[in-house]
Design a protein around this nucleic acid. Structure first.
Lengths: 149, 149
DNA sequence: AGACCATGGTTTCAAACTGAAACCATGCGA
DNA sequence: TCGCATGGTTTCAGTTTGAAACCATGGTCT
């Protein structure tokens, strides 16, 4: 479970997060958690994955501090799985994924789930990346700089 | 390769993109492609993955229209792999991943690669998600709305 | 108490996937 | 012609996946 990328360059800033998340199922679990799901059974029903797999993925998310268990909530003798701060930090990633999906995986007229502002129900804008001076920048406008200097 | 999530609800707006990407390796390939890598050998050296796996992942990325092959460039008799429009659309996702990594996987003083503005070498800002009215919104401020209405 | 059931897992086992290494193919240049 | 660089494919053992069966705990009903 821990040896997916044998950190050859001690794992770059993209590989390390990927390794922590684990796999796609984990990300779908996190998404469901953002949607308010908390119980083992809820995740299982929502995602339709095998219980052993769900169990392993939750364990991994706990181990990486992305989710944590809390004793109960409604008095039932079970525990619930909730996002940690670190887990909630995945929100922009999920939004990016969703917006990419909207752009390239749905016909213009095809109905799809929409991420909307709670305040007024209007769809949110696109994610935007800005430079220090406030310009919106894309891939072409940026580059990675090594730790160095 | 195509049956990772047996689209139970015909696959939501998050699962469908995930399915197309394939796996973590694919995302690392895309990241390398953003960094200018184009050749089979370059990807293999950079990522250190087995050639058969790289071959399979590239095939998958091609099949999903995320990358495409172009005849040559420097006259060599080989093809190069470049991002399509769809592939370039993954930029925000990679940025999200990178920023999450910066937040939770590096010590404050630990050196790490930085995404900078080409124009002036300054680090870019954080990704931001805004509502229609311009407010910056987080997970708590949003919800998903079903196709319905 | 005893039977039953809901929830949340673990175990088992066959099939699929992964990845290291060996092999193959093509197009050079010496 | 030989040798080599590049870009793959094939082979095969080891790992992972996932469906199904099983197990455990605690509550409910009678």
């Amino acid at each position: 479970m821990a040896k997916r990328v044998s950190h050859r360059h001690s794992m770059c800033g993209v590989a390390r997060p990927l390794d922590a998340i684990g796999d796609w199922w984990s990300l779908l679990i996190v998404r469901d958690a953002f949607d308010g799901l908390r119980r083992f059974g809820e995740f299982q029903k929502s995602l339709g994955l095998a219980k052993n797999i769900l169990s392993a993925r939750l364990r991994n998310l706990l181990a990486h501090g992305i989710m944590e268990t809390v004793p109960a909530a409604d008095g039932s003798p079970y525990q619930e799985y909730v996002l940690t701060e670190k887990g909630r930090g995945l929100f922009p990633l999920l939004v990016a994924l969703r917006q990419w999906g909207e752009d390239f995986f749905f016909e213009p007229d095809e109905a799809h789930v929409l991420l909307v502002d709670r305040k007024n129900g209007l769809p949110v804008r696109r994610l935007e990346l800005r430079a220090q001076d406030g310009r919106i920048v894309g891939a072409e406008d940026t580059m990675v700089r090594l730790p160095s200097a």
